[in-house]
Amino acid sequence: MAYLIQQIANAVPLAALYAALAFGYALSLAVTKRADLTYGALFAFSGQMFVLFADVGWNSLWLTLPASLAFGIGLALTSTALAGLVGGGFVMKPLAFVSANSVIVASLGSLMVLMETASLSSGFRSLWLPHVFDETVMIWPDPLFPVALTAIQLVNTAVIVLVIIVGYGVLDRSRYGRYWRAVSDDREAAALCGVNPERVYVAAYVAASLIAALCGILAALHYGNMDFGMGLAFGVKVLFIAAIGGQMKPLFAALGAAGFGFVETMWSAYGPIIWRDFAVFGILVLILVLTRRDKSVP
């Protein structure tokens, strides 16, 4: 019983990370209806920039550890937001409302640019962060099998839940949220009513980039490192996960992603780990096939 509770506890931080990534991904996807592979690259780019600038602050600027981490967080958020602004405003915006295939090709190009920029900036080195907030927080003090998480896992989960709540509140109650819903429902009708769909898309893309940036920073703090392979794996999973939860509805996409995080953790705990990705992706594909609707039939 204690082992099961520990696995459920382990699933919570991963589920929260997947939920935030899916929430951000659905923000931009709902406006364009175009799959974009750049999102996972922004996640990985932010994590790598955070680790790189934190290393610069510690080894080159001789800052204290908290100041180095703050320096890395600030520059990682800024650089990723700028990457999202440039990518969304000058690369994706001219293509997003034209052709789905062109968006996929452009996103692959953006992915390569971000990957090479991060690699060249770090000198192709694998940098690691020191352990921070790694104190154990006891959840169930069983003397035979204590259930616990680290402080960074709890902090990350709290921050991510807060971001999703605030994001949902903005979409539900703000003027921009009304514009976003209007463009998501019918871009042409929204334009006739005076809403600029391109501005709404760029704002959604930058907001999604900031969420990806924050998730990349939190993941790097947890794991101590970030590489593009990890970021792209998360990005591909989120693309499938958001499709099940509702690609056009960020909150539903987040809930679907959280459920996926629990399933993945339970498989890692009780199933053969070598088959984990094959099994979870197989489940995702099966669900997508079973829930697919033929739009040609009224």
Score class of each variant (00 low, 15 high):
A11R: 01
V155G: 05
F240W: 08
I211V: 14
E188I: 10
A203I: 15
V206I: 15
T38V: 10
M248R: 15
S209C: 09
A158F: 13
L14W: 06
G177H: 08
T78F: 15
F53H: 11
Q6T: 07
M92R: 07
A67E: 11
M49I: 12
P13I: 07
D186H: 13
E264P: 06
G282P: 04
E135G: 14
I73T: 15
F43N: 10
I152K: 09
L284K: 01
A204V: 10
R199I: 13
Y25I: 04
G167P: 07
F50I: 06
L218C: 02
G177P: 05
I287Y: 00
F71E: 01
S102H: 10
I104R: 07
R187A: 10
Y201H: 13
A30H: 01
M248Y: 12
L61T: 00
I5G: 03
R187Y: 06
V105W: 06
G84P: 06
A26C: 14
A219S: 03
P272E: 15
G261S: 04
D36R: 03
L149M: 11
R181M: 11
P250T: 12
F133H: 01
A35F: 13
G87C: 05
V91E: 11
V147Q: 11
V263H: 05
V12N: 08
L82D: 05
E188L: 12
E116P: 00
V238M: 03
D227M: 05
L149E: 04
V161N: 04
I160C: 11
A207E: 02
P130W: 06
Q7S: 15
F53V: 09
A30C: 07
L129G: 06
I5V: 15
G109A: 06
L144W: 06
S268F: 12
A258K: 03
V195N: 12
M115V: 12
V202C: 07
G169N: 10
V166G: 06
R175W: 14
S121A: 13
L111H: 11
Q7M: 14
F145N: 11
G256L: 10
P141H: 00
L171G: 10
F23N: 08
A151Q: 14
V51W: 05
D36M: 04
A20T: 06
L37V: 12
M115D: 14
M248S: 14
N59F: 03
P146S: 02
R292Y: 09
P94E: 09
V238F: 06
A22F: 03
L210S: 00
V166F: 13
V200S: 06
T32D: 10
I5R: 04
L42E: 02
A158I: 12
